[in-house]
Simulated scan of single mutants.
Amino acid sequence: MTNIPILFEDGEALVIDKPAGLPIERPRRGGASLEDHFEQLKLGFQRPPMPVHRIDTDTSGCLLLARNPKALKRFAKAFEDRLVEKRYLGVLAGVPSTSEGTIELSLSKISSAEKGWRMIAAKKGKPSITHWRVLAEIDGHALLEFRPETGRTHQIRVHCQAGLGMSLLGDPVYGNGKGAPRTMLHAAAIGVPRDGKPPIAATAPLPRDFTALGFVDGQD
C-alpha cells in the first residue's frame, strides 16, 4: 500500500491527498517527487496513474489522477471547459477589509536572472477569476475559501497579493515567506462531472499546519 492517502478511487480515476512539499514532477536538481509513488498507486492496475492537472509543490490536498489515457483526455477537457469544481483553503497574512468578493486579474509570466520566474497581474495576460470568502480570523490572520473559475499557474497566490493586497502566509515568492513553514494553501475539494457516471467527488482534510494555527474547516 502507498503512504499517500487516497480520497477517491474507481476504475478510471484516483484522487489523492498530496502532501505539502512533494513536487508532482521530479525536480531538475533531483530529489523526491510524486513519481516515486506511481508504482504503488497502480493499485493492481497495469498502468501507473497520470496527473490530470497541477498543484504547486507547497500546496497540499486534492490531486486528480487518471488511470488510463482515455480518462486522462476526458478529464483534461473537463478542466479546459471549466466544468471542474475546485475548493481551496488558504491562510492570509492579514485580514481583508470585506468578507467576500471576486478577483478578476489577468496573469502573465515574467522571469529575471536574479529572481527566476513568477506570475504577475497584467492586462495582456490570460484571464483569471477567483471567488473568495473569509471563513475565520485568528491572531491577525484570516482563513479564506477560494473557488477559482480558471486554473492559471499561481493564480490564487497572485490574486491574494495583487487583488487583496496581502499574500498567503508563508509564501516566499509573493510574500515575505514568514509566519509558516510553507505557502499556506490547501486543495480542499474537487468535483468532476462525468457522462453516464456519478461525478468524481473528493474532500481532503485540513492539514495539521492549518489546525496548528487554530483553524478548522467546518463549512461547505
Rank of each mutant, 00 (worst) to 15 (best):
residue 13 A to T: 03
residue 77 K to T: 04
residue 25 E to P: 02
residue 194 R to D: 06
residue 77 K to L: 13
residue 26 R to Q: 11
residue 28 R to Q: 14
residue 127 P to M: 11
residue 191 G to V: 08
residue 60 S to D: 01
residue 105 L to G: 06
residue 140 G to A: 08
residue 125 G to I: 00
residue 11 G to R: 04
residue 53 H to N: 03
residue 74 R to H: 13
residue 94 G to T: 07
residue 115 K to V: 07
residue 15 V to L: 07
residue 150 T to H: 11
residue 217 D to C: 10
residue 87 R to M: 05
residue 84 V to R: 13
residue 84 V to T: 12
residue 129 I to K: 09
residue 135 L to Y: 09
residue 89 L to Y: 07
residue 142 A to D: 10
residue 82 R to F: 15
residue 189 A to S: 14
residue 137 E to V: 15
residue 57 T to N: 01
residue 43 L to H: 08
residue 205 P to G: 05
residue 77 K to Y: 13
residue 95 V to L: 08
residue 44 G to K: 12
residue 50 M to R: 15
residue 42 K to I: 02
residue 97 S to C: 04
residue 38 F to D: 11
residue 202 A to R: 08
residue 11 G to W: 05
residue 129 I to H: 03
residue 37 H to P: 04
residue 120 I to M: 03
residue 37 H to R: 14
residue 207 P to Y: 03
residue 89 L to Q: 03
residue 81 D to W: 14
residue 153 T to P: 08
residue 183 T to F: 00
residue 16 I to F: 01
residue 98 T to F: 07
residue 218 G to K: 13
residue 62 C to R: 07
residue 162 A to P: 01
residue 60 S to P: 01
residue 214 G to E: 06
residue 34 L to E: 02
residue 140 G to S: 14
residue 53 H to Q: 04
residue 5 P to V: 03
residue 173 V to I: 14
residue 185 L to Q: 12
residue 4 I to F: 12
residue 69 P to D: 01
residue 207 P to F: 01
residue 51 P to T: 09
residue 185 L to K: 14
residue 69 P to G: 00
residue 172 P to M: 00
residue 36 D to P: 12
residue 18 K to Y: 09
residue 56 D to Q: 04
residue 136 A to L: 11
residue 203 T to S: 08
residue 40 Q to S: 11
residue 185 L to M: 06
residue 132 W to A: 06
residue 114 E to V: 13
residue 205 P to A: 03
residue 82 R to T: 11
residue 203 T to G: 02
residue 10 D to H: 13
residue 118 R to S: 04
residue 107 L to S: 00
residue 50 M to P: 01
residue 110 I to R: 12
residue 120 I to Y: 01
residue 76 A to Y: 05
residue 19 P to T: 03
residue 88 Y to Q: 14
residue 175 G to Y: 07
residue 66 A to K: 02
residue 120 I to N: 02
residue 23 P to Q: 06
residue 95 V to P: 14
residue 3 N to C: 10
residue 50 M to T: 15
residue 189 A to I: 12
residue 65 L to P: 12
residue 207 P to T: 00
residue 220 D to F: 08
residue 82 R to C: 11
residue 2 T to R: 05
residue 152 R to M: 10
residue 104 E to P: 06
residue 102 T to G: 03
residue 110 I to E: 13
residue 47 R to T: 12
residue 171 D to Y: 06
residue 53 H to I: 12
residue 166 M to T: 13
residue 184 M to F: 02
residue 89 L to W: 11
residue 119 M to R: 10
residue 124 K to D: 15
residue 100 E to L: 04
residue 160 C to N: 07
residue 24 I to V: 13
residue 171 D to I: 04
residue 120 I to A: 05
residue 177 G to M: 01
residue 198 P to T: 11
residue 78 A to I: 05
residue 43 L to W: 12
residue 154 H to N: 12
residue 31 G to R: 09
residue 20 A to N: 03
residue 28 R to Y: 09
residue 3 N to M: 09
residue 16 I to A: 01
residue 80 E to P: 15
residue 89 L to G: 04
residue 108 S to K: 15
residue 48 P to C: 07
residue 115 K to D: 13
residue 18 K to R: 10
residue 73 K to T: 07
residue 184 M to R: 07
residue 209 D to V: 03
